[in-house]
Design a protein around this nucleic acid. Structure first.
Length: 497
RNA sequence: GGCGGCAUAGCCAAGUGGUAAGGCAGGGGCCUGCAAAGCCUUUACCCCCAGUUCGAAUCUGGGUGCCGCCUCCA
C-alpha cells in the first residue's frame, strides 16, 4: 500500500511522491498573532501535526515550517484599541499560541519564520515581480497584476471573469490605483503613525500574501512538497501565493495543497467575524456541566478533532464534547494498561526509567493492527479509520485489565498483552494521543492497612446481615476514592479510583 | 449569480459495486443482600425519485435540504 492524499489543486487523491525521496518539506500557514486561538485553529494545527507525525511514521524525514504573521491591520487595530505597543501584542500572542499548542501535544515546528524578520526577502521578491512585469507601483503601493499570470485561479477553480462578475457589487470605490479589480497589494505605503520599513517604493509594509511566498522560499526552497492550511485560505491567500511565487519560479510552489475543513457551531463556520468562537484555553480551563463539572481534557479535544476526516466539517456541540471526553477515557485506560498491570504481569522492563516510551518500543511488524491502521491512514489520512484500531486495542486491554482486577489473573499470555499495549501506545503516538500515569494517587488518603481493616469490619457486618453498617463503610471508602469489588465467591478486591 | 462540498442508527463517524467498521449514548441478561464494578448481549436496509447492473449506501441522471469560498479568517 502506498500513501495517497487529496490535492486541492487537482481535486483528486493522488499518490504521494516527494521531490526528494524520503524527505518531505512542508509549510503550514500559521496564525496572525493578534488574539487567542480558537477551536478552528486547534483543529487546523492538530490535523497538520497528525499529518506530519504520520509521514514520520511512514519513514519520511519531515521538515515542517509554520509562520507567524506579525504585521497586519488586525494587529495594529488591536494595539490601537488596547493602547499597547503592536509588538507587545504579537509577543503576547506568539507565547499564547505556543502554550496552547503544547497542551494539545502538537510538535514544535522546525522553524517559525516571522514576517517582520523577513523584510529583505519580501522586498527582493516584490522587486523581482516588478522587474518581470507581474507587479506595478502606484503611489507608494505595489500591486500584483493578476492578468499577467496565466494560471490565476487554478487552485480555487475559478476564472478571473467569474470572480470579477461575482465581486462586482463589492468592489471598493477608491481602488482606482489598481489596474484590475482583483489585483492585490504586495506592498502598502505607510500611513502616519504606523510601523513601516524602508523599501524602493518608500516607507511601507508588506501585503498579507507576500510574506508566505518569501518565507517558504527562504526556509524550504523553490519547490516544496506540501503546503497546508485551512480551507478559507484557498482563496485568496494560497491562490495569491501561487501567483507570486510561480511567476518568478521555474517550478511549482508546492506539489500538494492540503486544506482542512472547518469547525462549525450550529452548522455555521466558527469564526472571529461571526463571534461564535470558543478559544482553546477557554474550553480547556472551564469546568463544564456536560462533563459533570470536569474540565475538558486536551487529549479529548485532540480526539474530537481526529474523529472526523480532516476535510469534513465538524460541529462543535455539547454532545460531541461529552462523547469525546468519554471516548478519551476509554483510550486512556488502554494506554495506561502497562503502567497499571505491567507489574502483576511480570514484564521485565516494568521499572525501567523510560518504560512506556514509544521511541523504545519495537512492536511486531507487520501486525494485523498496524496494517489496518496504515491502510486507513494511507487513504488521505483517514484518522477516524485509524482510531478504530486504537479503540479495538484499548477496549481489549481494558477488558483484560478488568479481568486482572476482578479475578487476579487472566488466561491471556503476558507477551500477547504486552505487544498489544505497545502497539496501542505506538499507534496512538502517531496521532499525538498520549497518557501518563498519575503518580500521586497511590500515596494519598488512607493507607492500605486502614483500608483492609475497614473491609474486614464490613465483612463482619455483612455476615451479621447488618447491611446498614456494611453499606456505610462502603460509602465511606467510596467517598475517599476507594472502590470495593465484591466477587462472586465472597472475596473482596479493591482499588483506588 | 459563479465555483466547490456534504446528506449513513438517538449523537458522532468509516465504508466508493456483493447485502452496513468503530466511538458515545441506550436496551436486555448474568453476578449481588442491595449496589458498584465487571462480564455477555443487543440497536440502521444508508435524504427522495428514476436508471445502469445478476447485484448499489457505493455508478449515472433528476430532485430536495444543508454548508463553504467568491471580503479579513485555520
Amino acid at each position: 500500500m502506498s500513501l495517497k492524499l487529496y490535492n486541492t489543486l487537482t481535486r483528486t487523491k493522488e499518490p504521494f511522491a516527494t521531490l526528494v525521496p524520503g524527505q518531505v518539506r512542508m509549510y503550514c500557514c500559521g496564525v496572525t498573532v493578534y488574539d487567542y486561538c480558537h477551536l478552528g485553529h486547534a483543529r487546523s494545527y492538530i490535523v497538520w501535526d497528525m499529518v506530519r507525525r504520520y509521514l514520520q511514521w511512514r519513514g519520511y524525514e519531515v521538515q515542517y515550517v509554520q509562520n507567524y504573521t506579525d504585521i497586519d491591520d488586525k494587529i495594529l487595530n488591536r494595539a490601537a484599541q488596547t493602547g499597547q505597543d503592536w509588538q507587545e501584542i504579537t509577543q503576547i500572542f506568539i507565547r499564547a499560541y505556543a502554550e496552547d499548542m503544547a497542551r494539545l501535544n502538537i510538535l514544535t515546528a522546525d522553524a517559525y519564520p516571522q514576517a517582520t524578520a523577513a523584510m529583505p526577502d519580501i522586498i527582493a521578491l516584490i522587486q523581482r515581480l516588478e522587474e518581470q512585469g507581474f507587479a506595478y507601483a502606484a503611489q507608494g503601493d505595489v500591486y500584483y497584476a493578476v492578468e499577467r499570470f496565466p494560471g490565476y485561479g487554478k487552485l480555487s477553480g475559478r476564472s478571473l471573469d467569474q470572480m470579477e462578475a461575482g465581486a462586482s457589487g463589492r468592489l471598493e470605490p477608491g481602488e482606482q490605483k489598481k489596474h484590475h479589480p482583483l489585483d492585490f497589494a504586495l506592498w502598502k505605503a505607510a500611513k502616519p503613525g504606523e510601523p513601516s520599513w524602508e523599501s524602493p517604493w518608500g516607507l511601507g509594509r508588506p501585503g498579507w500574501h507576500i510574506e508566505c511566498s518569501a518565507m517558504v522560499h527562504a526556509d524550504l526552497g523553490a519547490e516544496i512538497d506540501i503546503h497546508a492550511g485551512g480551507s478559507d485560505l484557498v482563496f485568496p491567500h494560497h491562490e495569491n501565493e501561487i501567483a507570486q511565487s510561480e511567476a518568478v519560479l521555474t517550478s511549482r510552489l508546492a506539489r500538494y495543497w492540503m486544506h482542512n475543513g472547518f469547525v462549525t457551531v450550529g452548522d455555521e463556520k466558527m469564526s472571529k467575524s461571526l463571534g461564535n468562537f470558543t478559544t482553546i484555553r477557554q474550553l480547556l480551563d472551564t469546568p463544564l456541566p456536560v462533563l459533570g463539572g470536569e474540565v475538558f481534557d486536551p487529549m479529548a479535544l485532540r480526539l474530537f478533532v481526529l474523529q472526523a476526516q480532516y476535510r469534513k466539517p465538524i460541529d462543535f456541540t455539547e454532545d460531541a464534547i461529552a462523547a469525546a471526553q468519554h471516548s478519551w477515557q476509554t483510550l486512556k485506560e488502554g494506554l495506561l494498561f502497562g503502567y497499571e498491570y505491567g507489574g502483576s504481569l511480570q514484564w521485565p522492563d516494568r521499572n525501567d526509567p523510560d518504560f512506556g516510551n514509544p521511541a523504545n518500543m519495537r512492536i511486531p511488524n507487520p501486525s494485523e493492527a498496524v496494517q489496518r491502521f496504515e491502510a486507513a491512514m494511507d487513504d488521505d489520512f483517514n484518522s477516524p479509520g485509524g482510531l478504530v484500531v486504537l479503540f479495538e486495542l484499548a477496549k481489549e486491554l481494558r477488558k483484560e485489565g478488568n479481568v486482572l482486577t476482578h479475578q487476579g489473573a487472566t488466561p491471556t499470555a503476558s507477551d500477547t498483552l504486552k505487544s498489544q499495549w505497545q502497539t496501542l501506545v505506538c499507534l496512538s503516538q502517531v496521532l499525538g494521543l498520549a497518557a501518563q500515569p498519575d503518580t500521586a494517587k497511590s500515596s494519598e488518603g488512607l493507607s492500605d492497612q486502614a483500608i483492609e481493616a475497614l473491609i474486614e469490619q464490613r465483612q463482619a457486618a455483612r455476615q451479621a446481615k447488618d447491611y446498614g453498617e456494611s453499606d456505610r463503610i462502603r460509602d465511606q471508602l467510596k467517598a475517599q476514592g476507594i472502590t470495593l469489588i465484591d466477587q462472586a465467591g465472597g472475596g473482596i478486591r479493591w482499588h483506588r479510583d
